[in-house]
Write a protein that binds this DNA or RNA. Structure first.
Length: 487
RNA sequence: GGUCCCGUCGUCUAACGGUUAGGACACCGCCCUUUCACGGCGGCAAUAGGAGUUCGAUUCUCCUCGGGACUGCCA
């Protein structure tokens, strides 16, 4: 009724390509927003001027669009809560920092990075991690501050940890959790270069963009969530709900990273994965509809998705299962659509054989999509088949020479008089030849395969023969004939 | 080291405190298509360990063990 409209956000930092872990977070946010008729906001966290790059912003945009994760507000789209890049929102952050300074919830710190590093080094290796800022500048007088500033000593602005014991969150997937405040220290809000840090910036963005649900990865849980909550309360701002998604791990059980192979969404695109397969698979990483349903398109995912069913234990990324999903979607896909997608895949596929004979090309794709796993497999298969050299000496021993010669004779004869070169016609010829010679199954198909491809496996034989073309197939059969007579 | 989270087949997961612990991927076998693949059927395979609560524990509690995350003037 007077429920606030749900607003979620996806705020990547453009320091790399959009990877699977973040893509899943984007997906979950998107599904959640769509499920509840809310808004999905896409903003950019580029306060790290050194590492942020425009090409990565573009990559994130491309990847999201490719996946079909459309945002309602944000980058390239605008909206009433913009701008949507943190580097353009500095005024907002400074306004809030002023408030914190005024309320004595933040203070100027003139300690240099070198100084801090020294302090840290004083601790032995084991305790180096336990280092916390000691609060040296916490109680500087107004005069000291003015003096330091006048001397142009670079300064940061730090948050002053309140004197409370615990901060509590009621996480949407983990339930109530308490963090001891003394595990934190007076963290930096504004860097010495004047840029806000992550915790300040997200918090201000979320607050000013009326974000109602913060759905993000578990890696934000322990450090960032308590800090941000402290910030909200120092500013007396209403808290959004938090929901932390389980991590996606590599096969070695560590956080998914480059080490685990291809991981950028655009890599999956160029490998030949279909967006619907990737979405479907990612959705099932840490979530399930609560029953045995697995194959779900975006509409179904939206329909069934809810945070309640999100797992709290991490999930391991299984490339095999992703491939299986892809095969499923490839088979379902309209062949003409696949043809168009292949055209857009890569330039190298613009000169694959037969591409200009639209009708034949479509038949090839149609026949090959049942064998392929990745989109790319289809044109690659066509190219491979094109380049097969036919029967080689090393495989001769695998067949009965006399039978093979008879088979070849029949085949050559039949193919010669075949005037309608199509997979169906080829299939019929093979069938009738088999019948006539009274051989079937492996005895029939394996020799023929060997004649034209020198292997005994691959896509449908009639598709292979169709792709090779009448002329070449006849040539290969004759070559095989010669080879076998010579033996 | 500290803090916190997590622990069902190899992997993703299902199971009002009562099920022969279910499904999917992978793997293996059979069938189908006169081959392979696709598809169909079947098989292998799990509640980390130990206490407790209970008539009864995968489910609730505690301990142990194991895994993970965080611990930046990165996000």
């Amino acid at each position: 009724m007077n429920q606030k409209k749900i607003r979620v956000r996806f705020p990547p930092s453009p320091t790399g390509n959009l990877h699977i872990g973040n893509a899943r977070t984007a997906l979950f946010n998107y599904l959640y927003a769509r499920h509840y008729g809310g808004d999905f906001i896409f903003r950019i966290e580029d306060t790290d001027a050194l590492r942020s790059m425009d090409c990565f912003v573009q990559n994130e945009i491309d990847a999201l669009r490719w996946l079909g994760i459309e945002w309602d507000e944000g980058i390239e789209k605008g909206g009433s809560f913009g701008p949507y890049r943190q580097s353009q929102r500095i005024d907002f952050y400074m306004e809030f920092v002023q408030r914190l300074l005024l309320n004595q919830n933040a203070y100027y710190c003139f300690c240099s990075p070198e100084e801090l590093e020294q302090e840290r080094k004083l601790l032995d290796d084991e305790n180096a991690y336990a280092y916390k800022y000691a609060g040296k500048c916490r109680y500087l007088t107004q005069k000291e501050i003015e003096n330091n500033k006048a001397r142009n000593i670079p300064y940061t602005i730090r948050f002053k940890l309140p004197d409370i014991e615990k901060v509590e969150v009621n996480d949407l997937v983990r339930g109530p959790v308490q963090f001891p405040v003394d595990s934190l220290d007076d963290f930096i809000l504004v860097r010495s270069n004047g840029m806000p840090t992550y915790n300040l910036a997200v918090m201000v963005d979320d607050a000013t963009m009326n974000i109602t649900h913060v759905i993000r990865g578990e890696d934000h849980f322990f450090g960032n969530t308590p800090r941000q909550i402290l910030l909200y309360s120092a500013l007396s701002l209403p808290l959004p709900s938090f929901g932390h998604m389980p991590m996606i791990l590599g096969t070695d059980r560590s956080k998914l990273s480059k080490r685990h192979g291809a991981f950028a969404v655009t890599d999956y695109k160029s490998m030949g994965f279909l967006p619907e397969a990737l979405n479907n698979y990612m959705a099932l990483l840490g979530w399930s509809p609560g029953n045995d349903l697995e194959l779900m398109n975006m509409d179904e995912l939206i329909q069934y998705f809810d945070l309640e069913k999100v797992q709290s234990s991490p999930a391991i990324f299984d490339f095999n299962k992703l491939k299986w999903f892809n095969g499923q979607y490839l088979r379902k896909k309209d062949s003409q659509e696949l043809v168009d997608m292949i055209e857009n895949l890569d330039e190298e596929y613009l000169n694959i054989p037969y591409r200009n004979q639209k009708n034949d090309y479509l038949k090839m794709v149609d026949g090959l999509k049942h064998y392929a796993i990745l989109l790319r497999d289809i044109p690659n298969l066509i190219k491979d088949i094109e380049s097969y050299s036919g029967l080689q000496r090393d495989k001769i021993s695998e067949m009965d020479t006399l039978n093979a010669l008879n088979l070849l004779k029949e085949l050559i004869e039949q193919f010669k008089i075949c005037d309608e070169w199509s997979p169906e016609a080829i299939k019929n010829i093979i069938r009738s030849v088999g019948k006539k010679m009274n051989i079937k199954g492996k005895m029939l198909f394996h020799p023929i395969r060997l004649f034209v491809t020198n292997t005994t496996e691959g896509p449908d034989l009639n598709i292979i023969i169709f792709i090779k073309g009448k002329e070449k197939v006849l040539k290969l059969l004759e070559q095989a004939f010669d080879l076998l007579t010579k033996e």
